[in-house]
């Protein structure tokens, strides 16, 4: 009885130690890359002591990558990564089959939507410059003057009527007259890669979220050859959180 008891407890110790060994092997045997984190809807970012991380490859508009095939929930999807000038990686293309070479993340589809819509808004500045922006929704009408606040990638973060003074707390303002609003229909998938959560101590989550939404957050991932990643640390304003 005593021996059997000890053996069973040792099995439990081995199982716990196994998680540590598994992670250690994963991290040491594979290359680590830095991914840029994407902003998240602020209503659903903080869950307990987890920081929820999102990437440009987390929500994929299939038409943007020229994909017409349909995806189902739990289907495998591969986000092929491209290296940017600052050394970080971001989504370059999407594939249903495993790419033969290069770096890629393997994820699973958690949600698919065939009838998603977005607005394509043409904005004309007083200088005559015209730019087309994309928004999931848009409540203004043609002819109205608005200010778009753009992040570093040139994406619209927020929209304000022009009369509001200094509306953009972060990002660059782009003001003009709405020339045209088009509704585009497309298919969208939401993908989970297993690198969406990072555990931090109580109270530290807010700072990381703010940085993430301002795009100062980079995620270090130990990437296996089969595209599965494991977070090894966060780089917050150039400082490591591990």
């Amino acid at each position: 009885m005593r021996l059997k008891f000890i053996v069973l407890i040792l099995v439990q110790v081995v199982l716990l130690a196994g998680i540590i060994t598994y992670r250690h092997y994963w991290v040491t045997a594979n290359e680590r890359i830095l991914l840029t984190s994407a902003p998240v809807d602020p209503r659903d970012i903080f869950r307990g002591d987890y920081v929820t991380l999102s990437y440009n490859a987390s929500t994929i508009d299939l038409d943007q990558f020229g994909i017409s095939e349909k995806f189902k929930r739990n289907d495998d999807v591969y986000a092929v990564l491209g290296k940017k000038d600052d050394g970080t990686y971001d989504i370059a293309s999407v594939s249903r089959t495993r790419p033969a070479s290069g770096k890629y993340l393997r994820g699973r589809v958690t949600y698919e939507r065939d009838n998603a819509t977005r607005r394509e808004i043409t904005l004309k500045q007083d200088t005559g410059a015209v730019r087309v922006f994309q928004r999931p929704w848009f409540t203004y009408k043609t002819g109205e003057r608005v200010t778009f606040c753009l992040n570093a990638d040139g994406r619209v973060m927020t929209v304000y009527p022009e009369k509001e003074k200094n509306p953009c707390r972060s990002g660059d303002p782009f003001t003009g007259v709405v020339e045209d609003i088009k509704t585009v229909k497309f298919s969208q998938i939401r993908v989970e890669y297993g690198i969406e959560h990072f555990f931090v101590e109580e109270g530290k989550g807010r700072a990381i979220e703010t940085a993430r939404n301002a795009r100062n957050l980079k995620v270090e991932v130990a990437l296996r050859d089969d595209g599965k990643g494991l977070i090894t640390g966060l780089m917050l304003d150039g400082k490591w959180v591990r």
């Binding site: 998680i19 598994y22 992670r23 297993g194 959560h197 494991l230 977070i231």
Partner: peptide, 21 residues
């Protein structure tokens, strides 16, 4: 002991950010 074993699985997964499956 059995409860701590279970808690240990989740805590170790959190310490090392192992969120795979």
């Amino acid at each position: 002991g059995s409860i701590i074993f279970g808690a240990g699985i989740f805590l170790i997964a959190q310490i090392y950010n192992v969120t795979v499956h």
